[in-house]
């Protein structure tokens, strides 16, 4: 419990790290209509693709220096000496980032989809999708950033983006499912299934990766 409080304290003071990605997401969602002819129909065609990719990019930006600071100032070493495992730390970090970045972005995506489609039921269905997918993306990019710790986030994104592609496909399919009003819950459960596997494996793998970096 204490570790959650401390990670909260750290992230809260780093406004740039959590507010930055949320604002970039906002700007991307504003940038989209500006590139399309201003017709309601045309706006709706590509809207969800842009939404999912914007969530993906914001999560990438959010996790940019998730371990870098702790690595550079020696915090990771102190933790390793004490507990010799980073899995708890990793899970807690992902959770705090999700609360600070993932949830605001999901709320924004609800607002934006309501604004674009003016369909409340549809937008309410978008909200859980973005909440779950943002958590999955966070986990994946955390792994990428652990791999490319102190080598810059581009490398991390390059090696983890392929992992996120199947999730994007599922998200695309679920939009079609919503529009045809078939099997929406099935997709939610599919995503939750992915999330539950990722949530267990990523902290373990990342813990090994960080140890390899410290060596």
């Amino acid at each position: 419990m204490k570790i959650i409080r401390l990670e909260f304290l750290k992230l809260k003071k780093k406004t740039r790290t959590w507010l930055g990605p949320v604002l970039v997401f906002w700007l991307m969602m504003i940038a989209y209509p500006l590139t399309v002819e201003f017709l309601q129909e045309k706006l709706e065609v590509g809207f969800f693709s842009v939404l999912w990719i914007a969530i993906l990019i914001s999560m990438m930006l959010a996790t940019e220096d998730i371990f870098l600071e702790d690595f550079n100032d020696g915090t990771l070493e102190q933790i390793m000496i004490k507990t010799s495992s980073f899995s708890t730390l990793v899970s807690v970090k992902i959770l705090t980032y999700w609360i600070f970045v993932g949830i605001p972005i999901s709320i924004l995506s609800f607002i934006f989809s309501f604004g674009t489609t003016e369909d409340l039921a549809l937008s309410l269905m978008i909200f859980p999708l973005s909440i779950i997918s943002s958590y999955i993306f966070l986990n994946l990019f955390v792994m990428g950033n652990a791999l490319s710790l102190n080598k810059g986030s581009v490398l991390g994104a390059l090696v983890t983006m392929p992992l996120a592609l199947p999730v994007l496909i599922v998200l695309g399919k679920s939009i079609i499912a919503i529009q045809l009003s078939i099997n929406y819950l099935g997709f939610i459960f599919l995503l939750l299934g992915c999330l539950s596997i990722i949530i267990v494996t990523v902290p373990l793998v990342v813990s090994y990766i960080i140890k390899a970096h410290l060596e």
Binding site: L9, K13, K14, D73, T75, E77
Partner: peptide, 9 residues
């Protein structure tokens, strides 16, 4: 050498 101090706190 690294003293685990957070600059921004």
């Amino acid at each position: 050498h690294k003293n685990a101090i957070k600059n921004y706190l």
